[in-house]
Write a protein that binds this DNA or RNA. Structure first.
Lengths: 205, 205
DNA sequence: AATATGTTTAACAAATTTGTCAATACAAAC
DNA sequence: GTTTGTATTGACAAATTTGTTAAACATATT
């Protein structure tokens, strides 16, 4: 009765859409392109998702939920703050290697409909992540392990240094002449560089 | 004949398009919306620019040229490196207040047609900016005014910390509860925060 | 005033893209 | 093998968006 292993075709369409949207960055991929890439009839997209918009919403939401969960898991753990940041860098950068354009899309979506922003609160899940990180920050600063900095600047620095090389990947690749291999290596390196820039000490291996 | 003060209507259409594209972030603004916003007949867009694509290319190219020029001017000057960075931060951040989504668009454009990347070399203008900055960096490092860092990481840090808060403006606004005024203040603050993060000393007033 | 030149307009045509539907294929259950 | 429910297909309709054109309008030149 067709619902064996997580409906095959439906899942295939979603994975293909994610690849086109978030990996290749084809923000305006037409239903025909998605269907072709997935090797299915275009009408199936409407059969499973009713409309292109709903498909888009759904795959974006799935990835947002994913982001929410890992951020919450990392920052609510009992690990030391530096360990949290290290894990965050690892997860975020690995993830961006898979979906370089996800960040771009979140922004593009919010631009279309600013009300939609509530869904994007990776920061609202019971206890506010913002408050947790803020408390951590204060503790580090008081203990002298971190120079005084406001939470919003700390996060802007951390996210910016991490996400920008992905968002602007083609630009940086061109400027510095990186091929895919070199760029991936560059991204991995960034984990250590960012850690060092923030804490002024080397990331423990 | 009719070319008095830089053709009024043509200029109006371009300014309106830039506002919709780069300030408001309506990446898919239709010709009708542009015409309505400018208060002109839609056919005039085709009269002056032949097609929506050409209009888009043209306004984007204008802004890219602008970026090219100020970056080249700042980094080829004889000022000390720290002064260059300070000026760069000032110019970039002020500019991003006007055109928050310009960065996003450059990337989106390149995604569509990766060949187009040559136009985006704010870094190729006679002498390569990359080489100039790289030389400056080495000098600073040797003189002990800067911790050792590779050019690509230095630029990723600098651009990321500067550009990200603009690219992800709606997200950060929502997380930290900034209204427009507060966000602008936050952006201005960032000049000092970034300078301090990079050079580990306060930006001279 | 007549003419020429450039600008603007509304109506139309073409192209693109999304969404719907009835017919068909397929697989499991009876 | 027939029934039943779901999956898939191609053809079609609707909607959206871009691009074209001929005529109206304005302004300057002769």
């Amino acid at each position: 009765m067709g619902n064996d292993l997580e409906n095959q075709t439906e899942e295939l369409i979603k994975q293909t859409a994610k690849m086109l949207f978030f990996t290749k960055g084809h923000i305006n991929a037409k239903t025909q392109e998605i269907a072709d890439e997935a090797g299915v009839n275009r009408a199936l997209i409407h059969y499973y998702f009713r409309s292109r918009d709903i498909l888009f919403e759904q795959v974006l939401q799935e990835e947002l939920d994913h982001t929410k969960h890992y951020m919450h898991r990392i920052f609510t753990s009992k690990d030391p703050f530096k360990e949290k940041v290290s894990q965050f860098l690892n997860t975020l950068i690995d993830r961006m290697i898979d979906y370089p354009y996800l960040e771009n899309f979140m922004v593009a979506e919010i631009m279309k409909d600013p009300n939609k922003i509530k869904q994007f609160h990776a920061f609202n899940e019971g206890v506010k992540l913002k408050d947790i990180i803020e408390a951590d920050l204060k503790e580090e600063i008081v203990a002298g392990r971190l120079k005084p900095i406001k939470i919003e600047h700390f996060m802007a620095n951390l996210m910016g240094m991490s996400a920008y090389p992905m968002i602007a990947k083609p630009i940086m690749q061109s400027i510095f002449g990186f091929d895919e291999i070199a760029y991936k290596k560059f991204l991995i390196e960034r984990k250590r560089v960012i850690y060092k820039s923030i804490f002024d000490e080397d990331l423990p291996s």
